[in-house]
């Protein structure tokens, strides 16, 4: 019988942002949580830029805006390959794609989210019919299951995943903030190393287990966030009014 402990996991996963930077390397595959930059981890993105990490193979829902979220990595030309569903809000990404600096693979948003989820869930891939009749189906392996035809979409994982959460305990259990949840729980599961940037870190035992969205077992390290250091598009529009 396992002896009962009231201590729980006493080892904290909290590290400094500098220590987190040691897990980044040139040429790594990097998954970034967030949607339009909302829910992207600002401090971890900044440290990637400060440490001159380059030639990144980035996987993210989108490329945010040129000065917001993963968009900054594009603007700073740190990304050489990209998997995303949308780059429309970041003209810099479009420019780099046109001139050949950035190789982009587009995947329908729901399929991309599910491929990431599958990676995090330890699956080989997913079967999906979204995109039949469009160029999405080009070159895809198909399979017939229960008299329906699906495309085989391999799962996605990454060397490093970076996510943002509102709250965590020292074990890395994560709770997100409103629509800043978006791709973060999926990305958190799919990293070989997952680093969460968190607004509020509390001791293990202080979070209601019923409210935890991402179990800490998926999270390797947590760092304290200093909040976003960019202005949202709607703030800029208000400024110019």
């Amino acid at each position: 019988m396992v002896s009962q402990s009231t201590e729980g996991s006493s080892k904290t996963k909290q590290i400094s942002i500098e220590a987190a930077a040691a897990h980044f390397f040139n040429g790594m595959t990097l998954m970034v949580g967030g949607f339009g930059g909302v829910g992207a981890p600002p401090g971890l993105i900044n440290v990637l830029i400060d440490r001159q990490i380059k030639d990144i193979y980035m996987i993210s829902n989108d490329t945010g805006f040129p000065w917001i979220g993963p968009g900054k990595l594009i603007t700073e030309k740190r990304v050489s390959r990209l998997i995303a569903s949308h780059i429309g809000s970041n003209p810099e990404a479009g420019k780099q794609m046109q001139n050949g600096e950035l190789a982009v693979e587009f995947i329908p948003q729901g399929t991309l989210a599910e491929k990431i989820r599958a990676g995090g869930m330890g699956l080989g891939g997913i079967l999906v019919d979204v995109g039949f009749g469009t160029i999405v189906e080009k070159g895809k392996q198909t399979v017939e299951v229960q008299e329906k035809t699906f495309m085989v979409e391999p799962a996605l994982t990454a060397d490093v995943s970076i996510v943002y959460a509102k709250q965590s305990d020292t074990y890395g259990n994560l709770i997100y903030d409103k629509s800043a949840r978006n791709t973060n729980p999926l990305v958190a599961m799919a990293g070989n190393v997952t680093i969460a940037e968190v607004e509020e870190i509390v001791p293990a035992g202080q979070l209601d287990p019923e409210c935890v969205v991402t179990p800490g077992v998926f999270v390797d390290y947590i760092v304290q966030s200093k909040g976003v250091d960019w202005k949202w598009v709607w703030e800029l529009k208000q400024d110019t009014k």
Binding site: A84, G88, G94, P108, Q109, G110
Partner: peptide
């Protein structure tokens, strides 16, 4: 010209 990406449009339009 412009290749913004499909975002969620394919999923939404098909389903």
């Amino acid at each position: 010209k412009r290749v913004p990406g499909m975002g969620g449009a394919i999923d939404l339009a098909q389903k």
